[in-house]
Nucleic acid binder design. Sequence first.
RNA 1: GUCCCGGUAGCUCAGUUGGAUAGAGCAGCCGCCUUCUAAGCGGCAGGUCGCGCGUUCGAAUCGCGCCCGGGACGCCA
Length: 627
Amino acid sequence: MPASAPTLLDPGLILRQRFAAAALRAFPGVDLPDPIITLSQSPKFGDYQCNSAMPYSKLLSKPPRQVAEALVAAVDIADIAEPLTPASIAGPGFINITLSHTAVASLLAQLDTPDLGLPIDPDAPVTVVDLCGVNLAKQMHIGHLRSTVIGDTLARVLERTIGPAKVKRQNHVGDWGLPIAMVTARLIDLENAQQIDLAKLTLDDLDAIYKQAKQQCQADEEGLQTARAWGMGPKIEAELEAANAEPLAHLARAKSTLVALQSGDPDVRRVWKRIFDTTMAACLATCARLNASISQAHTAGESSYENKLAPLVARLEQSGVAELGSGALIIKLDDMGIPEPCLIRKSDGGYLYATTDLAAIMHRTSSVATGGLGASRVVYCVDARQSLHFRQVFAAARKAGLVAPNISLEHAAFGTILGEDNKPFKSRSGDSVKLGDVIDEVVAAALSQLRARPRAQEMTEPEMAHIAQGVALAAIRYTDLSTERIKDYVFSIARMVSFEGQTGPYLLYALARVCSILRNAQGQGLLTDSPTAGPIAVAHPAEKALALVLLRYPQVVRDVDRTLEPSRLCALLYELAGAFARFFEACPVLKAEDDGTRNARLRLCQLTRRVLTDGLGLLGIPAIERM
RNA sequence: GUCCCGGUAGCUCAGUUGGAUAGAGCAGCCGCCUUCUAAGCGGCAGGUCGCGCGUUCGAAUCGCGCCCGGGACGCCA
């Protein structure tokens, strides 16, 4: 047990410890589960409650109220809560606990440190976060939003809990398959025909060329097979074959380009590199607009595993883990509860994306000394539709002994973004929507909302434009992060920038109001040089309610680390903003009844600002101090 | 067909390890700006937690069966 275990600030955790000790004292020798401590639903039940008397009563064969009485008699919480009395036991045996104001103030003072109760865990494992996952020759589209935003947020949270040095973002760029070869082939043709200048190539060009190339290679093989199967006659078959001739030729050309690319043909490589650079520059710019910290340094494309595939597959084949099935090389997983085998080599000798993923796992988890990333935890921020794929890859990696048993492989799966019609978000023409265009739209919507406000007159155009950017970013990211990852959600620009209720802008607004108070205090010379010097105190119910939300912050951040669910942090910050809004209504700060109250409230404001700023920062939402 | 994920107020969603009267937001209705930003606050109204059976002192939560919606399912990535 490290001596530097974080100070317990969360009242729920403190109470759990105290009640566990009480259970040990009251019922020595009995192995009871951890006490259940929850927030009370209603103020009349106090702040927290212990619900364990009932389950314990069964294990102890004693009436629940008697168990509750024994716990109340044994528990030592005099330093943090109001004294428990027989009236504290309610219903079948709930123990209601009201924290003392002095204890809350003292815990708040302990929270008010540079790390906000979140010291970096020195024993934490190096963690890889697989995120973004763009493809070459394609604009980032709406399908990349969640992987980018959720992945970036999880990485930010981990950077906070385990330290930035141990978090390795990995952008597993799709830069190596047949589709890329198709584009490369097409681009070489266009260049030879002098129809394009590679030096001036843009991603929009590539996007168009990608579609052309795909079209060119689109053979109606299904139709042909149907015609054969149904015996539609040689004439129809011949017609279909003729129609297929051209696509098949293009396909053959793409395949040979892929071979050339993979064997290092300099000219093909040169064109490919141009595609790569053009794509990455544009995508990283879009990531930057989303405030996602994803850079060239995080890029680890499929191509980077290119020369690892053959040795890996050979090893798996030799060890007998992989076997031939209908010509393909497969790893059977039925003994691991997965009926579908994992394919790692096609019957034509080509490798599949599972092969690349296995190579990536090895790179990520092997030691730094051997050129790996040294991770003990790998988090995949990828669409839920790939769940089976990752179950297969993880199981295959374990079965093949590619990763040690203590290494954690986690798929942080997320649902689909839907349009207003409840179907996957697409443009009117059925194409996927470019992410940059979506961001533009949200910024425009935010700006027009902003102009409609009465306060708009007090702002300059550049100020408003700046705020609109921030509001749009908060709207997009908060919307994406605030529901459970696994669920689909409807992308409604109107709702996300509505500025009302549970939205990113509401959180920014709460922060702007805190900042406003502190700014005015500064202006009136009410903030001393050492802002944390004055005593912290909690008296008014709204102050206490605010304090109790603040105290839950560190533990919620750790929860996000553990569960990979940013929505929990979103929920807490929303509660915090609400608690502050009620405090703001009920408790005048600058015009408080006396200096002591005012200073205590100023400290509460300062701490609220810090926690809100910190939490928003973890969500990748920069603070706006005035709006 | 098999497997995975969802189903909670008109709409969008919370609901932690099974706990008290299932909570928010939006939309609707009623109040509150001479006072630190009304993008706010207070209140009213709104629910067979998809259906059934079971386990339990207690089930939105756990188990089994069904219904509805979405998704995945050996040579695409």
